[in-house]
């Protein structure tokens, strides 16, 4: 059974159909690419999947349950985490605290426990500290643990955002243009990290990317979005040879 499935998903802003009849499926542990020209509605799809926008039509099923009625917080707790196109870190918090916010639900010591400093509180805080550090290590960020997030260089901020999303222990990770603004070397490195993340945490990843080549390189399945609808859906090879895609997307590029 698919991990995530959307059926006839759509949203209107005023009279404009930003996303319309959007159908797709992601399997467990799959690396899925969502591509399409600017303004095709890719980020809107992310906003729909994470509950930031409520769809005007259609159904979203995740892990066998409809998530339409859930709030963004509930959806995150249920297993969908995301990053943002324009980085949204907790800028004035330290790098490690950013990850610790993501780990909020990994412990359940109460407010009273934290005021009274009970053993439960110390146990919880130590566990959070450890988990946060090991997550930072995956992204080579552990030496910056105490640095203010805002003072990290751009590329590392993007990585920290992924680390924070992973801290919520998702089953599906949505990455919104993770390589935006990076040079080719950084991008290649990031793509390696993404592959490692998928193996290590055995999660599914849905990736928005502009760079067609890059997506083709690492994704197993790809959906091409144009004017809010799915233009094509399939393996990288199928996409490459799809005449519609070539006309709408590749044709412009080359």
């Amino acid at each position: 059974m698919a991990l995530l499935k959307t059926e006839g998903l759509g949203i209107q802003f005023g009279g404009l159909k930003a996303v319309d009849e959007f159908n797709f499926e992601i399997d467990k542990n799959q690396l899925f690419g969502l591509i399409g020209p600017n303004g095709a509605g890719k980020t809107t799809v992310f906003n729909l999947l994470t509950g930031v926008y409520k769809p005007t039509s259609g159904q979203i099923t995740f892990d066998g349950k409809s998530i339409l009625k859930m709030s963004p917080t509930q959806i995150t707790q249920f297993g969908i985490a995301r990053t943002f196109q324009n980085i949204r870190l907790f800028k004035n918090m330290s790098v490690i605290d950013n990850v610790k916010v993501g780990l909020h639900h990994s412990q359940n010591y109460s407010l009273i426990a934290s005021v009274l400093h009970t053993p439960n509180y110390y146990k919880g805080e130590e566990a959070i500290e450890e988990m946060a550090l090991s997550l930072l290590r995956v992204f080579d960020l552990d030496q910056y643990a105490q640095v203010k997030a805002n003072n990290l260089p751009y590329g590392k901020q993007r990585k920290l955002e992924i680390a924070r999303a992973l801290a919520t222990s998702p089953k599906l990770l949505l990455l919104d243009e993770p390589a935006a603004g990076m040079n080719p070397t950084e991008t290649a490195e990031l793509m390696e990290t993404i592959k490692i993340v998928r193996e290590k945490f055995s999660i599914a990843i849905l990736l928005i990317e502009h760079d067609m080549k890059l997506v083709m390189g690492i994704c197993e399945k790809i959906a091409v979005l144009n004017f809010g609808t799915v233009l094509a859906f399939g393996t990288p090879d199928e996409i490459k040879n799809n005449p519609d895609v070539i006309a709408a997307y590749l044709g412009d590029e080359e």
Binding site: L89, F90, H104, R164, T168
Partner: peptide
């Protein structure tokens, strides 16, 4: 710091 990001990090 960022209410939306906080919500999407699972914070109620």
């Amino acid at each position: 710091e960022d209410e939306t990001a906080s919500e999407l990090a699972g914070i109620p």
